[in-house]
């Protein structure tokens, strides 16, 4: 999978914090006493999920000149690969240091473990891990993310 850069910008950190109800001044007010005490601005714990903005292959973003499967004049169309459903089952983050505005992170993804389970309700379930490593320009790990997806043969039930 390709490597790409994830520049961490103060405005993006602010917008993300607002979206998750995080009104801590350390997310947006560099002059606040608490921010100074905490060593400067830092991003919300799950901010690295916003790496999707910089991922060249991210599928859930409309692109100019390309068809989008959401509604427009009509209600939309089933996404490519319909018939199976991929659900986000688990998400884990390991923080090696805090993410701060001004960081330029290098992002590398790799496949992790994969396994199958049989469920009476949903039939065969396939679980797949994806590991994303965020490193700084010195090559030091900043965050390691592990996403577990579950892929079913039927319609989405119970998970997001």
């Amino acid at each position: 999978m390709p490597r790409f850069q994830f520049p961490v910008e103060a405005g993006h950190v602010l917008c993300f914090a607002r979206a998750v109800g995080d009104d801590d001044p350390v997310r947006y007010d560099a002059e606040h006493e608490r921010t100074i005490h905490r060593g400067g601005l830092s991003a919300s714990p799950t901010f690295v999920a916003a790496v999707a903005q910089f991922d060249p292959d991210w599928p859930y973003r409309p692109r100019p000149g390309q068809p989008w499967y959401g509604s427009g004049r009509g209600p939309g169309t089933p996404p490519p690969g319909a018939g199976t459903t991929s659900l986000h089952a688990e998400q884990h983050y390991e923080y090696h240091r805090q993410v701060r505005p001004g960081d330029v992170l290098t992002v590398e993804r790799s496949a992790g473990a994969a396994w199958e389970k049989h469920s009476a309700r949903s039939g065969r379930l396939r679980f797949e891990e994806e590991i994303t490593r965020f490193t700084d320009p010195a090559g030091e790990l900043v965050v390691t993310a592990r996403r577990v997806r579950v892929i079913t043969g039927g319609p989405a039930e119970g998970l997001t």
Binding site: V20, G21, Y93
Partner: peptide, 26 residues
Amino acid sequence: MGLTARLVTSWLDDAVLTAFGVRFSR
């Protein structure tokens, strides 16, 4: 998950998270 993180960051004044993980169940 992001909303859930507030449980920790708005409760513990001096906490630095070293790990955070969830299972989505509903």
